[in-house]
């Protein structure tokens, strides 16, 4: 059992996500940095898809009421057990009565606390992930609060290997300006050509409105091709007749501030989506914080698929490294 003394700013139970319900308007939720989450799970010997805690900006204070193993991967938020720094990207044993706290964030945004067996909350529509907007899944459908008690599940497949750290080349980089690879479309033709070029050449800044639902950026104003809006589309030229929004899709309401839709976003609506962030880069976006910079770099679908295979391969390599 794990008792929540302080919850941190926004700590939720997340797994790989709730897939297969997008058509009824249910976004997947799930770990925003799915790579760090997966590595933390592997380190404690859990099966793929076991639930972990997603910490945002500020770490929680947790008391372990049983002996267990944990691993912390993701943003650089130095963790301490009973006041002593412990390593990240490595399995660590803790004992009943130990208290986990965190220092102030140094780099990134989100870190993942995996415990042996995973966090045990009810599986809702195939997932333990928290979708807070609708109060679905996770710990009572919400962020953790003081006094909450978490139980551990039995999703452990292997004995964790203690003292083995994930090498630096497999850990996330936190560049000062993140290149976010995008596939341009489906409604990019609605932007004026100059504006599409500006979209790809501007250094954008993450605003305070950047969360699990979406990331909003400020930079320059962009303009859409003027037209008589078709029946069913809103009156603003950034509107189209409603369409499905891919996860990672970028809309620019009124041409003012681009928004990337993420794990907890609405699944469809009437804004022109001018590009979509490739799936292999979504976890990098999730590690950029307010005031940081990003550039949108256009790639082909082939390149996007190549990068997705590379990401899957990286995880497979980490898994064999830990099993060796």
């Amino acid at each position: 059992m794990i008792r929540v003394i302080k919850p941190g700013l926004q700590t939720t139970v997340q797994d790989e996500g709730r897939f297969g319900h997008y058509a009824i308007g249910m976004p997947p939720a799930g770990a925003m940095d799915n790579e760090s989450y997966a590595v933390a799970n592997l380190l404690v010997g859990n099966r793929r898809g076991a639930a972990a805690l997603e910490v945002t900006y500020m770490g929680p204070e947790l008391e372990f009421q049983t002996d267990t193993t944990l691993a912390i991967c993701g943003a650089d938020i130095p963790p301490r057990i009973n006041g002593d720094l412990i390593p990240t990207w490595e399995a660590v044993n803790v004992q009943a009565g130990d208290v986990l706290t965190f220092d102030v964030l140094k780099q990134g945004v989100r870190t993942y606390i995996a415990v042996a067996g995973g966090i045990d909350v009810p599986v809702v529509m195939g997932s333990r992930s928290t979708y807070t907007l609708c109060g679905v899944g996770g710990y009572h459908g919400r962020t953790l609060q003081p006094g909450d008690v978490l139980h551990q599940a039995a999703e452990q497949a292997r004995t964790p290997k203690l003292g083995v750290a994930i090498p630096a080349e497999w850990r996330p980089q936190f560049p000062s300006v993140l290149d976010v690879h995008v596939v341009v479309g489906l409604y990019s033709y609605r932007l004026l050509e100059d504006s599409l070029n500006e979209f790809l050449n501007t250094e954008w800044t993450v605003t305070p409105e950047a969360n699990r639902i979406g990331y909003r950026y400020k930079g320059v104003r962009l303009n859409f091709v003027p037209r008589n809006q078709p029946f069913g589309a809103g009156s603003n030229p950034s509107n189209v007749v409603d369409c499905g929004y891919p996860i990672g899709s970028i809309q620019i309401p009124d041409g003012v501030e681009p928004i990337i839709l993420l794990n907890d976003a609405v699944t469809g609506g009437g804004y022109a989506t001018v590009a979509t962030v490739i799936s292999a880069d979504l976890h990098r976006v999730a590690q950029t914080r307010t005031n940081q910079k990003a550039r949108f770099v256009a790639v082909t679908v082939e390149e996007a698929l190549h990068r997705r295979r590379q990401k899957q391969q990286r995880l497979a390599e980490i898994e064999s490294f830990l099993e060796a």
């Binding site: 700013l9 945002t56 409105e209 969360n211």
Partner: peptide, 8 residues
């Protein structure tokens, strides 16, 4: 401090 619609 307001961040992600949270007030700290």
């Amino acid at each position: 401090i307001e961040i992600m619609k949270n007030f700290y």
